[in-house]
Amino acid sequence: MPGQIDDPHSRRYRALGTGLAVPIYVFLLAPIVVTVPMAFGPTNALTFPPASYSFDLFRIFFNSPAWLGSLFESLKIAIATTALAMIAGTLAGYWMARHEFAGKGLVTSMIMSPSIVPIIVIGLGLYLYFSYLRITGTTLSIVLGHVMVTLPYVIVMVVAGVNKLDRNLEFGAELMGAGPMQMFVTVVIPQLVPSLVSAAFFAFLLSFDEVIIAWFLAGPNTVTLPVKMFNALHWEISPVIAAVSTLMTALSLLVCIVAIGLRKWTPTDV
């Protein structure tokens, strides 16, 4: 800032803070910095930095029916999950933000529970429950499982968005003669667009990256990309994983940019 008084004391501490923070930034970014170059490396060795650069690993990935199949399975599940979670989450979130009722705290904590309960517990519960319903191994079962874990985040983001809206606008619209649904569509939804877009991206990414529930529920024909990757990392680490990782990171980066563009960080600080 021009005109700021240069205090050597605070400058020294500022430098100390930066000196401590930079290695941590490096540590946080290391996984990305390492994987992306390796994705363009040779197909026979996992070394960093790669000895030579090519698109061979991506070629292998896109020519492998198993990898491609899991990619499409993941996309299918993520899209279905996002659609369902957005519909249910927007309606439920709006309703919860605008209504006071007995036991609201209980209902809220029930709805929010999947964000606190260890995913493994949810995964096991879904596995046992869906076995009883005889739907394990289906795409539907994974979608339902993912809806369960993404909903709390969607609801939190919708509630936060609704809380920022001026209630008088909704009341005013009703006073001017709009019915509840008309009011919701013409007044609430247009104003919520930023929250809804970031919630949708977030839901999509959560579902696309989700391992544990899919690990419990996936059948032979419904292996998602993360499950296939988890298996691969567990048994034999092949260089193709670098390409898969890079694709997943690119998706994360996209979501990250959207999130920043919409000035909504994450649901954790809500």
Binding site: D166, N168, F171, G172, E174, L175, M176, A178, G179, P190
Partner: peptide, 15 residues
């Protein structure tokens, strides 16, 4: 909506 009332709000409440 059926009361035939108009309202002006302190914070304007414009869309």
């Amino acid at each position: 909506r059926e009361r035939g009332i108009g309202m002006v709000f302190q914070n304007y409440a414009l869309m």
